[in-house]
Computed example of a mutant assay.
Amino acid sequence: MARTTSQNQNEKNKVGAFFLATLILWFVSVLFEIFFNKRTELLWIVAGACLFQIANWAIRSFVSRDPLFVNTSVSLLHSTIISVSVVSILVNQCLKNGSDGMFEHSQLVGGTWEWAYAALCFSCGYFAYDQLDMLFYRLYSGLIPSILVHHMILLVCFTLALYRNVTINYLILTLVCELHSIFLHVRKVRRMAGIRNAKSTIVRIEWVLNWLTFIFARSLTHILITVKLVADAPKFEKGVELPLALFGMAGMNLINVGLGIDLFNAFKREKSTENSNHHGE
């Protein structure tokens, strides 16, 4: 038993070392772009990573030292900031230029809505911070941790788009899913805080919002983006943009399926607990 535990620990160390090495390489590439290629607009990535690390320290110092609680709380902060940013960007674009042509291929691939670039950089900084936090506190499991793979794929896709200044608006649309992430993180923080009364009105409202945003802000949005990519495939120039976009969206849609199953199972568990408590009374 002890030998098995030791082997698992060694495997986890190797996995952590691999993802840490990829994160360091990513960070070096960002610094190279900023300092050697004079891409000062990428400083928003650094600003995002620093802000969320400061939030981490603040929560750890004044609220709780539980690594999972701290990590989830910072994730909630990111989802809230990015959701407000994305909605503001879309509304601002509609008010200034109207919705006509807003979702045309040329606009989604070659255009950049006001503040979209900064918002994408900011979110990229969060994923780098979160990857490091999860590695440092070992908030992952398995030989191929899905959360670490997810973050690595996002960092690659986001930074390539930022370096080449293409598909920025497409990626902003994918971040509409952060509206759903708010309620995922709220549920997690709420349960860690010991609030688990399934009959509570607040909890029931939370579940309604959780399902509505999962369906419309995450699942439907990502499906529509995938359909749009496939329909506009002939309009893409030769290069990595289309294959990378299709690969990224395929991954996101698969993750959404797994997330939906997990969400349904969690909902069933809470309902069964509610029914058990009701019969117990």
Rank of each mutant, 00 (worst) to 15 (best):
G16D: 01
G194F: 09
G258W: 09
V208K: 07
F52A: 04
N169T: 05
H151W: 06
S88F: 10
A266Y: 03
T72P: 03
L155T: 04
M252V: 15
G142S: 15
R65E: 13
A116T: 02
A119R: 01
F19L: 04
I24M: 01
S83Q: 03
A193M: 10
A116V: 04
K96F: 00
F69A: 05
A2L: 12
M134W: 04
N275R: 14
L43F: 12
G258Y: 10
C177A: 13
F69C: 00
D262I: 07
V189S: 01
A17L: 12
R187F: 00
P234F: 13
Y126G: 01
C157K: 07
L184F: 13
M134D: 02
L212V: 14
G125A: 11
T72E: 04
A49T: 13
K188F: 03
A55G: 09
I81Y: 03
L95V: 03
P145N: 12
M249T: 14
K235D: 12
L23G: 02
S29N: 10
H278F: 14
E114Y: 07
L160S: 09
I147Y: 07
A58E: 03
K12A: 15
W207D: 10
H151G: 04
K38M: 08
F122T: 00
S88Q: 05
E11A: 13
E270M: 07
V46G: 04
H278E: 13
F69M: 05
S181V: 06
G248K: 00
L184M: 13
W115G: 02
S219Y: 14
N197S: 11
K228A: 08
Q53N: 12
R190M: 10
S73Q: 00
C124A: 09
V240A: 11
Q53A: 14
G111Q: 06
I225S: 02
G101Y: 03
L25T: 07
P243F: 09
V189C: 05
G142T: 13
N92Q: 08
K96E: 09
V240W: 11
K271C: 12
T4G: 11
N169P: 00
